[in-house]
Amino acid sequence: MPAGQLSASGSSEAPGPSELPTDPDAAVTVLYEAHWHRLVRLAWLLLRDQLAAEDVVQDAFVATHRSWSSIRDSGRVVGYLQTAVVNGCRSVQRHSVVVDRQNAREAAAADAPGRGSHGSAETQVLRSAERDAVLRALRTLPERQREVLVLRYYSDLSEAQIAQALEISPGAVKTHAHRGLTALRRTVELLELS
């Protein structure tokens, strides 16, 4: 079953082209079932705005649909989606966000349901001050470091896959990961002291 294989292989590189339907509607439906939630969550981690995250991933799926035959032939379907999502997030931050929206987003994190510290009772319990501190520290990192860390520790991508998704060299992935983690270590050490 294509859908089963897709979700089992997760973000790793992809099913052979022959496993996905040639019809773009059918293919996008299969891909949506397998990857929509995870990609929206990936975008959420990068953007911290659920609507914007859904918009970005929706655009990525629409783009996949429109160029389906060539994407299918490339054999790099999930990688294409991931790249489109990361680029889409970056472009949202560059263009629409400005400081303005970043700020709106922070507020939304406190306000809207399912968006952060003011959520259901369940959310409240799951969320600890520690987690918040780590996520806050993550948000202060430069964009590339943040992207590398999220792809690595949320999406569980390999170094080569991250390099491909971000269109940078594997060496740069290594450097960004190391710098990002080193910066976060300070936060974690503080937490351990307290």
């Binding site: 996008v28 949506y32 969550r41 981690l45 799926f61 968006r115 959520g119 987690r131 996520l135 976060l184």
Partner: peptide
């Protein structure tokens, strides 16, 4: 330890949202 904390923080944070359904919108849009 940093990797562990980050992994668990990202995982929990990602679960804090419930993505809406947009398949119909994607197909319409496409």
């Amino acid at each position: 330890p940093v990797e562990d904390r980050l992994r668990s923080a990202l995982d929990a944070d990602a679960r804090s949202i419930a993505p809406g359904d947009r398949l119909a919108a994607i197909l319409t849009d496409a």
